[in-house]
């Protein structure tokens, strides 16, 4: 069987092999309670990666997600007292606007998305610093529980965070596979010129993809903020690399068009298992990004569709 044929199955096979390896080396990995808490821990990252999937699926990338989440942690903490649960709306709106703006810059001003989103990321970071006065802010525990306490309970042993993640996955999956928007995303990712020649409004599709990425990053930031009960312009640092790794090892290549949100769920689990393995192997936290950097390069090299690159990589 050729590599091209097993390529789509690569992610889950990788996940299975990694789980088995880690499990054999350390049987306590299979302890259900431990597994559940591992999975809940990875929820904010997963949501961010879910949004990122949309940007990568159309052949772009969103480098602003981490700063977007940082900004939202600050917004949520600062405005919780004024708006209560309403900060969720503000957060989502902020994500949508910043994402849509990146999309606008990419499609209408012809700035490649890696630059436009990087720049918008710094705008978000700066806004977060300004809003927080460069201090770590804390939420009032009572207010937090009143508005967002529901996020962290358990029902029948299932953490609510996990339920939120699954609901968002279901929404994203529905968007991707069942709507005209999702179909348009696929067309733009697989063959943008054909999408244009079919009369699709490609610019609008792209702008929406970046807006969705922004919204998911904002939701991730909100959950993270509530979880840690505070906000800080650096709170979500370290998420960006992991989110990109999750999308790519999941099997959505940088060239877009294939893969999708379910792949990202698998990719996030792979990241989770690698992270757990590094804990067992006692790899120092400072070295973990090194490992993920290498994993990222390997994932890109394995997944990228070279026929779309036309020989030029800069």
């Amino acid at each position: 069987m050729s590599f091209e044929r097993i390529k789509p199955h690569f992610p889950w096979i990788t996940l299975l092999v990694l789980v088995l390896l880690v499990g054999i080396a350390n049987p306590s990995f299979f302890d259900p309670a431990g597994l559940l808490s591992l999975v809940s821990d990875v929820v904010p990252l997963f949501i961010m990666a879910l949004g990122m999937t949309f940007a990568i699926y159309i052949g772009g990338i969103d480098l602003s997600v981490q700063q977007m989440a940082n900004l939202v942690t600050v917004i949520a903490t600062v405005y919780l007292a004024n708006f209560g649960i309403g900060v969720a709306l503000i957060a989502v709106a902020a994500g949508f606007i910043i994402g849509a703006f990146s999309g606008f810059v990419t499609t209408r001003l012809y700035v490649p998305s890696f630059v436009s989103t990087l720049a918008m990321g710094f705008v978000a970071l700066s806004a977060a610093k300004y809003l927080s006065g460069q201090r770590a802010l804390y939420m009032d525990a009572e207010l937090r529980d009143a508005s967002f306490g529901w996020m962290f309970g358990r029902t029948a042993g299932v953490p609510h965070e996990l339920v939120i993640a699954l609901v968002l996955l279901a929404i994203a999956w529905f968007l991707q596979t069942r709507t005209t928007f999702g179909r348009a995303l696929k067309a733009v990712g697989s063959g943008e010129l054909a999408a244009v020649a079919s009369g699709l409004n490609v610019d609008r599709v792209k702008i929406l993809a970046f807006a969705i990425s922004g919204v998911f990053a904002a939701i991730a930031g909100l959950i993270f903020s509530v979880k840690l009960s505070g906000g800080d312009a650096n709170l979500a640092n370290g998420f960006l690399l992991l989110a990109i790794v999750a999308v790519l090892v999941g099997g959505t290549p940088l060239t877009g068009g294939v893969g999708g949100v379910v792949n990202t769920a698998i990719g996030t689990l792979i990241v989770m298992v690698i992270r757990a393995a590094m804990v067992y192997l006692e790899i120092d936290a400072t070295q973990q990004q090194m490992v993920f950097g290498i994993v990222l390069i390997a994932a890109i090299a394995l997944t990228i569709d070279r026929s779309k690159l036309r020989g030029v990589v800069k």
């Binding site: 348009a184 696929k186 697989s190 063959g191 054909a194 999408a195 244009v196 079919s198 699709l200």
Partner: peptide, 24 residues
């Protein structure tokens, strides 16, 4: 192959690409 069909999308996806409004 570049502007006509979208490689990576199947037959019905390609056929309705210009008229998704009629099928949704």
């Amino acid at each position: 192959k570049i502007e006509g069909i979208v490689a990576g999308m199947n037959v019905y996806e390609n056929m309705t690409l210009s008229q998704m409004g009629n099928y949704s």
